[in-house]
Structure formats: C-alpha cells, structure tokens
Design a protein around this nucleic acid. Sequence first.
DNA 1: TGATCTTTTGTACGATGGTACAAATCTCAT
DNA 2: ATGAGATTTGTACCATCGTACAAAAGATCA
Lengths: 236, 236
Amino acid sequence: MVRKPTSKETARKPNMREAILAAAEELFATNGFNAVSVRDIAHAAGANPGSVTYHFKTKDGLLLEIYRRHCGPMNLRRSELLTAARRVRDLQDRLEAIVRAYVVPAFTSGSDLAGGGARFTRLRAVMSAEGNEVARKIIAQTFDDTSHAFIDAIHDSLPHVPRTDIVWRSHFLLGALYYSLVTPERVSRLSRGEADGGDPANAIEQLVQATVAAFQAPALDQAAPTRRRTVATTKT
Amino acid sequence: MVRKPTSKETARKPNMREAILAAAEELFATNGFNAVSVRDIAHAAGANPGSVTYHFKTKDGLLLEIYRRHCGPMNLRRSELLTAARRVRDLQDRLEAIVRAYVVPAFTSGSDLAGGGARFTRLRAVMSAEGNEVARKIIAQTFDDTSHAFIDAIHDSLPHVPRTDIVWRSHFLLGALYYSLVTPERVSRLSRGEADGGDPANAIEQLVQATVAAFQAPALDQAAPTRRRTVATTKT
DNA sequence: TGATCTTTTGTACGATGGTACAAATCTCAT
DNA sequence: ATGAGATTTGTACCATCGTACAAAAGATCA
C-alpha cells in the first residue's frame, strides 16, 4: 500500500525521516518542547536516537523542519481562501468568510501532510506558551504578513471599527483557536458531554459564529451608549 | 519597610520561602515548567538549591504551593463579583458585569500576593499548554465549580442561547484571556504600536467588549436566518 | 558482484537535571 | 549565654539529557 518511490530523483527512503517528524510533532504538540527528549521521539518513531541526529542534526533543527513543512502550505491555503472571501459582496457574509478563511486551515490539513493542520496548530500554541525561541522567530517572520492581510480584510468589511480594536479581537480569535486545540476535553467536561470539544467541525462553527459577533461589537470608544460600565468594579 | 513579623505564631522568617515562590512563579510563567531548573529558581531568588528542597520537598511541590496560594483568593474574589453581578437588573448590563467578574480577577491581584493575578493566570496558561499533570488536577478540581457558576449565570441572562454554545464561548473567553497574557507583545506589534498589549486595563476592556458580543451571538442552530454558510469552503 | 554512498545502530561523553543529606548557621525562649 | 529547633549551605549521587562518532547494514548501479 505504501508506494515505494523507486528512489531516483533524490534517492531517499523517506519512511524513517517522516516517522520521526510525525512522532516529534505529536509529542511536542502534547507535551511541549522541553518535556520531550530525543530518545522519546526516536522510541515513538521506532528509530534509533542517532537517527534523529543524522536527519536533523539537533533537536532545534527537528523543530525547525516541522515548521518548514507546515507554514508554507497553511499560509498558501489561507491566502487562497482569503482572496475568495474578499470577493463576497454582502459585508456580513464577507466577514464570516474571512474569519472562516483564517480558522479552517488551522483545523484541517493545510497540506497532504499526515495528521492535518490541527496538530501543527496545537504545536504552535504550545510553543508560543513555552516562549520557544526557534518558534518565535519563524512565526513572526512567517505569519505576521498573513495576520496583517486578515486584519486589513476585516477592517475593510468593518470600516467603523478602529484598527486597534480589530487587532485585539483577532488576537482573541487566535487565543481561542489555540485553546480549543490545547484542551478540547475541557469543553466536553464543562458541557457535561453535550458537546465534543475534539470535533473540528463543531469547534470551527462555534468559533466562527462567536468571532464574527465579537468583531461586530461596537468600537470601544463609543461603547455602551446609554450607561457606562459601573458594575463589578465594586465588592460585595 | 518590610515588617518583620516578630516570629511567634509559627516562628518563620518568610523571606526566603516567599522569594523562592515569587521567583518560581515568574520563571515558570515565562519559560514553562520543564525549561526551568530548581537551580535557576534558587539563583533568581538568591537562595541555595537545597533551600528549595527544604521548603517544598520537590519541584512539583513548589508548583503545587504556587497554585495553593492563588486559587483560593482568586476564586473568592470571583464569587463575590459574580454575586454582585447577578443582582444587576438589565440583562445586557448583567451579562457585561458577569464577564467582567470573570476577567478582572484574572488580570488584577486576586489577593495581596506580590505580582498580582496576571502572573499567576499566565502561569496557568503556560501549564495548561504544557499539559502539566500537577496543574491539570488542581485546576479541574478548583476551577470547574467556578466555571459552572459563571456558565449558569451567563445562561440565565441569555436564556435563548443553548448551554452548549455558552460553554464553547466561555472556553473561547478563557483562551483569549490566556493568550493575551502569554503574548501581549504580539498585540503591540500587529497594531504597529497603536495598542499596548501589556496594559491590563486595555486588555480587560477589549476582552470584555468582544466577549459580551460573542456571547450575544445567535445560537448556532438558528444561525444565519437568511443564507446559510456557503463561502470559503470553496477554493479559488 | 563489488564499489560507493546513504542510512541505521550502538555506544559513549560531558553537561545538567532533581533530590538527598550532613554540616554550618541562624533564631529565640529560657 | 545557651540549648533546641528552624533554616541555609555545600556537596554529592544518580538519572537523563543532547549530541558525537565509529561501525554495521542497506541500497544503488557500473
């Protein structure tokens, strides 16, 4: 079933290398970078620890390669979807399409790589929480363009909301997205089994619905036209 | 300035113990649990590594103690604010008050402990991302009651929204809250300096405003009364 | 087949990790 | 001041870490 690639152009037997990448991705995404040892990865991949060094030189190099594999395809997919979304006439529909263009590739496979985009997005969430240096560099130089493109697109469809507010709200979107992937079981638990936090389709719909409404909230300056906030700053 | 406590009731010199707790909190919150060594903590606190073992027995014990110090006060504060919020008559205002009661203690000092609640909340975010076992246990048994109380309160003020949707949206709220504390500089960067992601007051207002709107979004079942979602599922 | 190159294995080294523990030091009621 | 208990220090043990490297095994093609 697994097609042997006749080994010509580059003459590789990609099995082991791919297995290591997949195992590392899974382990890093669930346990963080520092908690996972090269030996753990090798064991999970059915490989020898030395093999990891051979293919990726260092542990950082392994992480770097994981990012390289995913960033391109996911950003490409987002660009395509964003371009399509910007063409939607109705402003309300367009906003939803834009949000969907941002969210969907993060959950579903951004390429034909095994495991889909969800695992990689979860990895990004965990690395960002750990303050991983390798990840921080790659992310800033790879995703900031995309983020700006989305912010601009959203701003176009919500001209009355200041750009600053849109930045905040898209930041919240990414945080919610990350957290949905990091602790999906919390949703199942708090809903007492009525919702499956691990179901991507479910998460996407909920996230899109909630986020669109959040973006459409009135701007902060002109917030609460009748009363201004008074409550809950006081004690009992 | 620092009051020496006459050392009677329990006869301690709390300086070192407190210094270790503070240093650990700071280091864990910024670098994660596994990346920080006991020696790092001791060094940052101006203490000897053995001192950490003496006061907290193990590294896990140290983390446990950090949680113990913060969970109680923060939950208490939230309960007080929630009780007050539930008394608000106007449904819209009540919802905002409830959200504020959830958000504010997470950002500001939940007790008189140094550093305020923001550092501890960031710590929780990082631990949750790392899948830390100690933290997971404590959190589930300490915060789930509070979470349910908030979900119920929100449900009361939004009777037409299914509980499931409210669970999802409060999950998104927590994710957004966490992420705001984990990478505040991203907000500053993406807003090109127009917003200060590190300013708690700013973050709170933005988060409350956006979240209230998200909670008020139509329920998923009856979503999009005119058209249903069609866009952005198609390619270019 | 045998020469050559790629990949995998096995093992080892130096660094660093958490933790234990005895000795030194400090605190304070008597 | 002195003795008892609390705290701090210094050090050492053992496990595990990332990585290096030589040898074994496998693949490729003249």
